[in-house]
């Protein structure tokens, strides 16, 4: 899985993930997410637009990042989920635990509102 990080305006960090977010690849994303929490960034958008599949390792990574960011009042928003990734979130009954937006633009808008 490819993991890239970029900054958008007002201190919002966007992590773009590409490929499958699973047991094999989740350590890469975990490292980046936990570093952002350590740096106490105010908001992180995880762009899952190019993620074909996410398993429980991916979800556990996102839960860990959510908890780590929450410690300093930081926010984590998931954007661009497809039918498969959304189904895993629903089966885990986490759709109310995570902030979920259709795409990056909506995620940025909700952080600004």
């Amino acid at each position: 899985m490819k993991v890239s990080l970029r900054q958008v305006n007002d201190g919002i960090s966007v992590i773009d993930l590409e490929g499958d977010f699973d047991l094999y690849s989740s350590p890469k994303a975990r490292e980046v997410l936990l570093q952002l929490a350590k740096d106490k960034v105010p908001a992180v958008i995880v762009n899952l637009d190019k993620v074909g599949y996410m398993d429980s390792s991916g979800i556990a990574t996102l839960i860990e990042a959510l908890r780590a960011l929450d410690k300093h009042g930081g926010r984590l928003i998931l954007a661009g989920l497809n039918a498969k990734t959304m189904e895993v979130i629903k089966l885990a009954r986490l759709e109310k635990v995570f902030e979920i937006r259709d795409n990056e633009e909506q995620a940025i808008a909700s952080l600004k509102s």
Binding site: S56, A60, T61, I63, R67, R93
Partner: peptide, 16 residues
């Protein structure tokens, strides 16, 4: 067992 409100992800695979 996995608890969606409090768990860190342990037990999630079996729950799924």
């Amino acid at each position: 067992s996995f608890d969606s409100a409090n768990s860190a992800g342990g037990g999630l695979g079996v729950t799924l």
